[in-house]
Write a protein that binds this DNA or RNA. Structure first.
Lengths: 334, 334
DNA sequence: GACCTAATTGTAAGCGCTTTCATTTTTTAT
DNA sequence: ATAAAAAATGAAAGCGCTTACAATTAGGTC
């Protein structure tokens, strides 16, 4: 590998000057710059970012922890981040936490050992305190899809309550009053918040909420199918069903079809997340859009602005979901 | 940040010894190790991987170039890689090439500047020669989902011909003879190979191939819809349609439904890739499984074996697709 | 042309670690 | 107990770059 030293000799300047042209720092005469440039070209010089990082104490690398890599959710999010970071010549070091506190910690640790300039974390198992602590230690990090009050400034998340509200409000607006709710895992904040939104919508429209119409699933398609069966088994009557996410909605549709109930003629269904396959279902699934890519972008902007001091990179902390109308909802028949 | 030097002083040993316990290299007496360990714990030492990389000329980092991050394909692939690499304590630096030769080159360059120990590349725009050249320059790289003869050893890919064969062979086996084919972009190797497989299956079973039953799309759902319409418009008669991928199959199903043709009673449909939503369609899409996660794993094994000299990491160069039976195919009615 | 200021370059000290080689200590064999 | 061999440790030279700071050169001004 050819070094800066060799380039400097070939160009007849000092290595400091070569460093200056590489980084475009300090001042260097145009003629000198050209000299150096051609020396680099001739020798086939390749900058050694590792050495530069050690010397400058900046790696231009962002550590990224997500639970898993498969599925389309995290790809979309990281895609949003990557797009923004690429233009700033930053790179992403990726690690998976598998929703396990020990692994999550281990990965965060590894990323810090690699001296990432900042971390973007979608972690699920680690405690709030642990993250608060990191921030207090001066670690530059942004938590995505999770809100922690003490470090609200470091969080970027979706307003799940609003999303839950929007979904049920839509059903109410088109005339439904008997609305079942297939909840996600309620020990998770988003599962709980979406249900809260549902309840608020009911209250706002003067419809009484009843546990009898609610079923707690686990965000998986199968639990949607089971939810419908359970509801029907307990004799619940409903003309619409709001679901904690699209997978469960898809599962619910399968169960409804089994029961001979048409969607949307007999029962309206609304999902949440607007995942890729929502539009491939038939009829297309009406749902709530989770602006996941935008969250990724916001995280990138946070980092660019706060860690690298780039201005003009705006970001918000709480993003708003919105209703996506497709074919699974319609007014109830009289 | 506390350094190895400070630890060594606290422990009353040399920094070389501290380095040895950190890396578990050389020999160090058990008692000394404990001394060093507790010194590290007390001082809250965090290894500086950047400095270590510079000194050792190893970064334990694999550069990964994919076209895009969104969608579920690359997430699944990277997930396979990550799982294998995590156990070996390697990390992945991710970059996107956007199917643009200049960007792809730029990203490869950036990853090399960061002194990645190896690269895993899913690149689409860069030429074969360019990649062959890199290999000849001594760059450790594995090309995924693409086969280049000169560097076949560095390639891990799917047998697309076999996949195309399997799909059409299945339709033939259950009695179809009038099989339409909705091809992907034929300037892409996989689009072409899948079609070739289709043709081979027909030939093997003594059915004549005709261009009249083939339509060239572009792997997008919409082109599947258009393909069916075009075929019907030109008066083609078929009882089954094989598609270059699941998106196109999904588009085809929409068009068939519009035309009042039931799937699979009137027309059988088979896709390719077995993407996430294939099982959410109704009926579930019969398709060819693309073992994308396994390809990611194989790439990791290649790297582990060839670059890091870990043994016991086997890998193959050409992976086999297999048929996934769901609900969109059945024997033609008499 | 002398003098002041600004622009340009060079010198050299690290950044925090690994690793070779030499040295010291411990163990084993006789 | 003693020599030889093995194990454990230390000294120090980098790895390739950045970045004060000092030194030099260039550009203006009167």
């Amino acid at each position: 590998m050819v070094t800066i030293k060799q380039v400097s000799e070939k160009a007849g300047v000092s290595s400091a000057t070569v460093s200056r042209v590489i980084n475009n720092t300090g001042t260097v005469k145009e003629k000198t710059r050209e000299l150096v440039m051609s020396a680099m070209a001739e020798l086939g010089y390749r900058h050694n970012v590792v050495a530069a990082s050690l010397a400058s104490n900046k790696t231009h690398t962002i550590g990224y922890v997500v639970p898993e890599l498969h599925g389309s959710f995290f790809g979309a999010m990281m895609g949003g981040t990557e797009q923004a970071l690429r233009q700033a010549k930053k790179h992403m070091l990726i690690a998976t936490g598998h929703s396990d506190a020990d692994i999550e910690k281990e990965q965060i640790d590894a990323l810090l050992s690699r001296r990432c300039d900042a971390l973007i974390l979608h972690v699920e198992a680690v405690s709030d305190d642990y993250l608060v602590n990191l921030v207090q230690q001066g670690v530059e990090l942004v938590v995505v899809n999770r809100y922690i009050e003490e470090i609200g400034d470091n969080c970027i998340s979706l307003d799940n309550i609003k999303g839950g509200y929007l979904a049920s409000r839509h059903l109410l607006d088109i005339g439904h009053t008997k609305i079942a709710y297939l909840a996600g895992s309620l020990f998770k904040a988003d599962g709980k918040n979406r249900l809260t939104g549902h309840q608020q919508a009911l209250r706002d429209m003067g419809v009484e909420y009843t546990d009898n119409l609610t079923y707690e699933g686990n965000f998986q398609a199968k639990s949607g199918t089971e939810g419908i069966r359970a509801l029907v088994a307990r004799g619940a009557r409903f003309t619409a069903v709001a679901c904690a996410n699209d997978e469960m909605a898809s599962g619910a549709m399968i169960a409804l079809r089994e029961l001979g109930r048409r969607v949307p003629e007999d029962v309206s269904v609304i999902g949440f997340d607007n995942v890729d396959f929502a539009s491939y279902l038939s009829p297309g699934l009406t749902t709530i859009d989770y602006p996941v890519q935008k969250i990724g972008t916001m995280a990138a902007h946070w980092v660019l602005e706060r860690v690298y001091g780039h201005t003009r990179h705006e970001y918000q902390h709480i993003l708003s979901p919105r209703l996506i109308l497709r074919g699974t909802t319609s007014s109830p028949e009289q």
